[in-house]
Design a protein around this nucleic acid. Structure first.
Lengths: 202, 202
DNA sequence: TTTTACATACAGACTAGTTGGTTTGTTATT
DNA sequence: AATAACAAACCAACTAGTCTGTATGTAAAA
């Protein structure tokens, strides 16, 4: 009975289990013991890889949550010449990808932001900086749309990017409360109306 | 040294102190002992008036938070013949009323919704029902606007009401992260753009 | 009016359970 | 052999809730 060891593998196993617990119960609600139960590891392992619960939380945020949100919402933005159509495509895509159950847990990033921003400056700083990245990407996409003649030149792309970001995060938050996708669908339709109001009129 | 007793007074003192702690640290972060310290009362008093921490939380939600949000956002809606102007007036009013510090704590209702909806069905149900009230009031105001010719008859008032609700709550959430009012101002301006896109064109 | 009886409104010490974290020892890897 | 990667027992702090007792208010009886 020889047990194999793989440090990086173990670390990732802990990270993923911690992510699940944070998604289900929030950071404060995540219990170290429960994370361990879900990995068949013991405290020695966890505290070998992470110095504290806080450090584990930061790692989940930076290595799992931000990465995933970036793949889903930020990186694809470059593909589109028409950001108005592009952003709506991303929204619809997310709506098709995730189940009702997943929606009722909310966006992991938004959850963490709402819960921890006022309580822990480390979380808040990391989240703010990531939102600034996201905001910059949206603003850049809108500017590109202006250059291509799809977006009206009168649009303030900073304001508009912030609004879109807020609607996306707000929608997942609202959908979480209702425990079904109806708010998501309503907000998607009205976001489309808003996006069209940004379009260059010919 | 005769100590006066006033049951209702004592109860309200506990409620208000609990509200403050919940606003500062969330429901999970609220400590019964800290609430007591801020009132100069002891556990006997608190558990005489409230059967549990949960019951205290529910009371704060129903008797303080929902009442306040209703006064601020729902009841004034009836005054306006033009809901598009009316809703924007309410937003501006809130922006003028509350300080940066208050904004960085977030809307108490939204905070509680984000934190507790997935964790406690009692909180979730109460919050969902209250959002439905709010949603109905917005929808009604928009319908009235349609009858008065201010709002385009093609607008789906249910969708639009949900969107507006989501933007309001999302904006306070985003503003909390940034710890200044800039996101609020950006979102206010873009909400105005959205509202104007609902207007009846002549 | 005074007394009796009871209910309400608390105080304050105590408890059982939880939780993040530590320490010491053991096994695998290099 | 030396070090990294864990296991397992243990600890100290915290926390919601309980329990017993006491002071205050109140309504009925004498």
């Amino acid at each position: 009975m020889n047990k194999q060891r793989n440090s990086e593998n173990t670390r990732m196993k802990i990270l993923k289990a911690a992510f699940m617990e944070m998604h289900l119960h929030g950071y404060q609600g995540m219990r170290i013991d429960q994370v361990l139960k879900n990995t068949d590891l013991k405290k020695g392992a966890l505290y070998h890889h992470f110095s504290s619960k806080q450090a584990l939380g930061y790692a989940v945020l930076e290595e799992l949550i931000e990465t995933k949100v970036s793949e889903l919402w930020i990186e694809p933005l470059d593909q589109f010449d028409d950001p108005l159509e592009g952003i709506y495509t991303l929204v619809k895509n997310v709506g098709n990808t995730f189940s009702d159950e997943f929606f009722s847990l909310g966006c992991p990033l938004n959850n963490l932001a709402q819960e921890m921003s006022p309580l822990d400056e480390g979380f808040r700083k990391r989240i703010e900086e990531f939102y600034q990245l996201w905001h910059a990407a949206l603003s850049k996409a809108l500017k590109k749309g202006q250059e291509c003649g799809n977006v009206s030149p009168t649009v303030n792309t900073d304001d508009s990017a912030m609004f879109i970001l807020t609607v996306i995060e707000g929608t997942t938050g609202m959908t979480k409360n209702y425990q079904n996708k109806e708010p998501f669908y309503s907000c998607s339709r009205e976001l489309k109306r808003y996006l069209e109001s940004l379009r260059q009129r010919n």
